[in-house]
Write a protein that binds this DNA or RNA. Structure first.
Length: 664
RNA sequence: GCCGGGUUAGCUCAGUGGUAGAGCAACCGCCUUGUAAGCGGUAGGUCAAGGGUUCAACCCCCUUACCCGGCUCCA
């Protein structure tokens, strides 16, 4: 019998009957593999398991428990959802349904402008399970664009995709990512691939897909949302359904569990529960008030930040919340950033705006008198509160807010100093972030957008090199984002990974060639000539509010002892121990610790429970034994109860713990 | 800004076209307690705001504000 030989990823070779498919191969290797297989990679291209293998091919089987495999499962599940929706909602038009991180979505337009309600999801899910039970095959075929247009004649969005793809990416005027979006949907070139499940349901798709719907099943529909067709705000609004899909029931459940855990950490929920801050309706959207418990944490953050900045050679400045429109004309904000600014206030003979950024005011400070090269680098630091108009639908707790405080600095330096300044700045930024419990960092370096920039190519090259070199020197893993810089200069953005693996963009270091120009900033060099400084914008926390929100989620509200609003709570077992508890509290306060006492009006168990729910690091129970021996019963957060701890040793331990947390 | 869903006591939530209820919290008693919820009582709501329909609206309709999930945006 004729045979063909293929190579496997481990370098071994196998002979298979002519006409063999990846399924044949997987079965030949083992039944477990055959069961887990969802697609294959043949000579570098992902294909269906059922496609015949060419002789001499390099073949790898994709299983459901890999990223690629889950991608296939999700994409296939999206097709099943589309079929279910077209069955349940006659006349539904379907557009795009890709796999995304942790799941998939599909966008629809329902007949007569109908919209999905959350309640529709269970019906759609039930229908999807029927389709999966029916074990429909995914049958691939390839059509010419003309045939495809006929096939999808009643699906305008599909026709749009076919036309865009067949027109090719070379003559489209759309941004590159839009082309990627459609090609991921159908493939590229002159043929259009489609996958048919039933005589009635066929969808455009590049594939690959699982062999049949029976391979799917561990999924859940999560939510409905509006989404613009092709992401265009002016285009039609489609109905999107998000779902998640996994290779096993256990993997699905684990994912749902992770979502629950993330929900428990939600800073808006914890801020409420722990009485940290609130967003009163009366105050307006995107504006927060800090309660005492949140306030003390913020003060500790600010104190720490100020101390580090003093040590880092920064000078403290303060600027007002409002400025005359002329300032923002000079800075260019009214040209480039007006949409992000609060509306103007007219008074006397001028127009005033709340400031969206601190930089223009810092430039005024630089310009207040003649500067010498001897003063550079001049590092101006301010915890500056800014106001930005964020569209109503974009507000999100502390993460996206309209009034916030930046730990903002503008550094004015010479060309020659730029390199060293950026390198030491990066050290500084990382050191401060580490003190807040972050250990895992990545960065993005954004480079010049050739269409939109100010300053000379040489300046850009030098600054970009300086940023690059600093990242390399620090050993910080980073990606280059070509063309992603603001018009005024290249930048580094630093992302941190939190306790449950999510990344947050926090710090930023940006070079600016534009503002020194606009404000005509100058210093006198040692050559007695006037020179223009380079300006760096940088923020570590970014916004104190947002950083605080990230911390709440990172620590799940259980702040490390150094920043806990109450570090220790004293609980006298009975009223007879109240005086002793007060004495201990006084002593601890004298040592600089934040301590409170809850009297014995409630039972001990109840008071302990309350303290635990407040996530207080140490619950100190004192009773007869402790009064007699000057000891404490120490119940630490997340630890074992220890009775009879001497007050002095507790103080020493607490002191060490706090010092260690801050020694980064 | 757009799509969808919301807004009832401090919090978490029930509820019906005939002007409202629970648990927790608060407050007051009793209990004086050794490591995550003792018992009893009291008070607390213009049912987000405004308008409309109705004999009657917390409930139905409209507008506004705010919140939630997305989209878009975040030089």
């Amino acid at each position: 019998m004729a045979e063909l030989t293929i190579s496997l990823p481990d370098g071994s070779q196998r002979s298979l009957p002519r006409g063999a498919t990846a399924t044949t191969l997987a079965e030949a290797i083992g039944s477990r593999l055959a069961k887990a297989a969802v697609a294959a990679v043949v000579d570098g291209a992902e294909v269906d398991l059922g496609r015949p293998l060419p002789a001499g091919a390099q073949v790898a089987i994709i299983t459901g428990d890999s990223d690629e495999g889950r991608h296939v499962l999700r994409h296939s599940t999206a097709h099943v959802m589309a079929q279910a929706v077209t069955q349940l909602f006659p006349g539904a038009k379907f557009s795009i349904g890709p796999a995304i991180v942790d799941g998939f979505y599909y966008d629809f337009e329902l007949a007569d402008g109908r919209t999905f309600a959350e309640a529709d999801l269970s019906a759609i899910e039930a229908r999807m399970r029927d389709i999966i039970k029916a074990d429909q095959p995914f049958v691939r075929s390839e059509l010419s664009p003309v045939e495809a247009l006929q096939l999808f004649a009643d699906q305008p969005y599909k026709c749009d995709i076919i036309q865009r793809v067949s027109a090719g990416s070379s003559n489209t005027d759309d941004p590159a990512e839009a082309v990627d979006e459609v090609t991921s949907e159908v493939g590229d070139g002159d043929t259009i691939s489609v996958y048919r499940n039933t005589p009635e349901f066929v969808d455009l798709c590049r594939g690959p897909h699982v062999p049949s719907t029976g391979r799917l099943g561990h999924f859940k529909l999560m939510k409905v949302a509006g989404a613009y067709w092709r992401g265009n705000e002016k285009g039609p609004m489609l109905q999107r359904i998000y779902g998640t899909a996994w290779e096993t029931k256990a993997a699905l459940e684990e994912h749902l569990h992770r979502l629950e855990e993330a929900e428990k950490r939600d800073h808006r929920k914890l801020a409420q529960e722990l009485d940290l801050l609130s967003f009163p309706t009366e105050l307006g959207g995107g504006l927060a008030v800090w309660h005492p418990k949140g306030g003390i944490i913020r003060k500790l953050m600010e104190d720490y930040s100020r101390e580090r900045h003093i040590n880092g050679g920064y000078q403290f400045v303060f600027t007002p919340h409002l400025a005359n429109a002329n300032l923002f004309k000079t800075s260019g904000h009214l040209d480039f950033y007006k949409d992000g600014m609060y509306p103007p206030m007219e008074m006397d003979n001028g127009t005033y705006y709340p400031k969206p950024m601190n930089c223009p005011m810092h430039c005024l400070i630089f310009r207040a008198r003649q500067r010498s090269y001897r003063e550079l680098p001049l590092r101006l630091f301010e915890l500056g509160t800014v106001y930005r108009y964020e569209r109503a639908g974009t507000l999100h707790g502390l993460m996206r807010i309209r009034g916030f405080t930046q730990d903002d600095s503008h550094i004015y330096c010479t060309d020659e100093q730029l390199q060293d300044e950026i390198a030491s700045l990066l050290d500084f930024v990382m050191s401060v972030l580490r003190a807040f419990g972050f250990t895992d960092f990545t960065a993005n370096l954004s480079t010049k957008d050739p269409q939109k920039y100010v300053g000379s190519d040489e300046m850009w090259a030098r600054a970009t090199d300086a940023l690059q070199l600093a990242l390399d020197k620090y050993g910080l893993p980073h990606k280059i984002k070509e063309g992603d810089a603001a018009f005024y200069g290249p930048k580094i953005d630093i992302d941190v990974r939190d306790a449950i693996g999510r990344t947050w963009q926090l710090s930023t270091i940006q070079c600016d060639f534009a503002l020194p120009e606009r404000f005509e900033l100058e210093y006198v060099g040692d050559d007695q000539q006037r020179h223009r400084p380079i300006m760096l914008h940088r923020a570590l926390f970014g916004s104190l509010e947002r950083f605080f929100g990230v911390l709440v989620e990172h620590y799940a509200g259980a702040f490390p002892t150094w920043m806990a609003p109450v570090q220790a709570r004293l609980l006298p077992v009975a009223s007879a121990h109240q005086d002793y508890a007060d004495q201990v509290a006084t002593r601890l306060r004298a040592e600089g610790f934040r301590v409170d006492v809850v009297d014995a009006n409630e039972q001990l168990g109840k008071r302990i429970r309350a303290a635990k729910l407040e996530k207080i690091p140490y619950v100190l129970v004192v009773g007869d034994d402790d009064v007699a021996a000057s000891t404490l019963g120490v119940n630490p957060r997340g630890g074992e109860v220890e009775r009879g701890v001497s007050l002095e040793s507790f103080i020493a331990g607490l002191r060490t713990e706090v010092a260690d947390q801050l020694a980064q």
